[in-house]
Simulated scan of single mutants.
Amino acid sequence: MHVLDVNQMAQFFVSSFKLVAIFATVCVALELIFPAYRYSFASYVRGVRNWIIRIGCGALIWHVYTASLERLGVKPLLTVNFGTFLHSDNAIVNVGFAVLSGVLVAIVGDFFRYWMHRAQHAVPFLWRMHATHHSIRELTAWNCAHHVSEPLIDAVFVAVPLALIHFESGAVPTVALTLIAFQVHLTHSSTRINLGLLRYIVSDGKFHRIHHSMEVRHRGRNFGTFTTLWDTIFRTAYWPKKSEWAEVGLRNQPEPLTVRDYFMFPFDQRRWCRAKVGSGVREG
């Protein structure tokens, strides 16, 4: 395999953007029907632009990552075969088993994401990258892109550990990735829709919004991306009250409005000096 395969990267970009467009638009419909906050049209346009940039950079990073694993001969150390205990002669039941298997894989993957996320808030260099995402004040299903460096952090902290686990059922990784992709937009959407009792397993927008809150009492809470289980187990869960809708963003760091600001947010020393003078503490 060539280190850079333009066709494969183009296919990755198109398929990824299709998923983002579908899932984000579904969540935007919920935002319009059941709004928690009303945000400007410009923020949605900005969000689409940033996602295009983010996925474009991600296509390059993920292609180099997969090519590198192949060249280095990295093989799984553990095989998990869901088919041995989640199987039925009934086709409909098997579809249910595939979804259940996907949920289980998503929960396992979120264990690594949970600790990666905590590291992003604890390590200054990682925080500067991640703060690009936290600076967003008009947080919606479209306007929620991370910094372009995020796929690289994902590859190191999440994808590499998961590469050492082989899931035998071919449908499982696809289902898991689809669930996680949808969850990214649902948890950042500005809608009052919540998952009720299911939120004690699967994160929703109200739970994750606490993680983006400006309030000091919410700091260091709700790190899970897909599931709330790891926050519960490691005692970082904060369950918002029914009427609790936190203001989000960083108090002394406005979200990047231009393409240059989006790329350079972590490296803008003037921006970070202003934030330090204004708050005296690192936000997030």
Rank of each mutant, 00 (worst) to 15 (best):
T132G: 10
C144Y: 08
H146M: 04
E150Y: 15
P124K: 02
V148W: 15
H130C: 00
N143G: 11
P151W: 10
L139Y: 13
S149L: 09
H117F: 01
H134D: 13
P151E: 06
H133Q: 11
F125S: 07
H121V: 03
S149E: 08
S135R: 09
L139R: 10
A119Q: 10
H133Y: 08
V123G: 02
Q120C: 09
I136G: 13
M116W: 08
R137S: 12
A122Q: 13
R137E: 15
H147E: 07
H133P: 13
A119F: 10
E150L: 05
A141D: 15
A122H: 09
R128Q: 02
I136D: 14
M116C: 05
R128L: 04
V148L: 07
H130E: 04
S135Y: 12
E138Q: 15
S149A: 15
N143M: 11
Q120L: 04
A131N: 04
H133E: 06
Q120I: 00
R118E: 05
L126S: 10
A145C: 04
L126T: 10
H146W: 06
H117S: 00
A145M: 06
A131W: 06
W142N: 09
L139S: 11
W127P: 06
A145P: 09
M129P: 05
T140D: 15
I136R: 11
V148R: 03
H146C: 02
H117M: 01
S135D: 14
V123Q: 03
R118D: 07
H146Q: 00
R128A: 03
A119H: 10
A122N: 12
H146S: 06
S135K: 13
T132L: 09
P151I: 07
H130N: 00
H134A: 12
A122P: 03
N143C: 13
H147A: 08
V123T: 06
W127V: 00
A122S: 13
M129K: 02
V148F: 15
A141Q: 13
H146L: 04
W127L: 01
T132C: 12
E150H: 15
H130A: 06
H134N: 12
H133V: 03
M129F: 15
